[in-house]
Amino acid sequence: MAANVLKQAWLVLVLAVCFGAALAGVHVGLSPRIEANRRAAIYDAIPVLVEGAVGEKAEQIELGGRRVYRAYDAEQRHLGWVIQASGDGFVDEVELLIGLDLEAERITGIHVLQQSETPGLGAGITEQDWREQFAGAEAERPVRLVSERPDEPNEVEAITGATVSSESVRDIVNAAVADVREAIHAGESAAQGGNGDGQ
């Protein structure tokens, strides 16, 4: 019986083992490159979000339950923060990088890492003209969507025909900025308190 099964299936077994080995080889050979691509997608965006920062100098930390990058310039001066955050879009997950200034008072810009929103409509969240509206918004209060050309900071014009995608970006930004700002300010006051004790 066992011999018969082997006689029938030996080819499948041999192929499965050979293919498994071949795939392991491909994985070992290519995964450093793939990992480097993934890192580059994040680190290349950091200088765009925090002016003067150097991508490779950035340091990844946990802050307020979020993945945050401390952005430094070439002389190791701390310039600002970049938050990596994601949420549900209209089609699939939307993943963003959000830049904050050093005091976590203003948003310096947003960058879309990953999205599969509808081409021509929701995919408009990746357009520079649209993303630029977030730059300069105060981190203290949430960003609002408006239907006409905004005239105040913290107002962003929703994309026509892509309300859900616009709202999704707004919600991701507001939630992430609130968490991280709180954590940064709590950290600062703790640090100041610590200094006070020492004096």
Binding site: Q8, A9, V12, L15, A22, R33, I34, N37, R38
Partner: peptide
């Protein structure tokens, strides 16, 4: 009776390889 299984195995292997190559060179 095992040929479709073998076809699928062969195809899946090469698709996985091409997927990794695209991720590495055309991210």
């Amino acid at each position: 009776h095992l040929r479709i299984l073998v076809f699928t195995l062969v195809i899946a292997t090469f698709v996985t390889i091409v997927d990794r190559i695209l991720q590495a060179y055309l991210y």
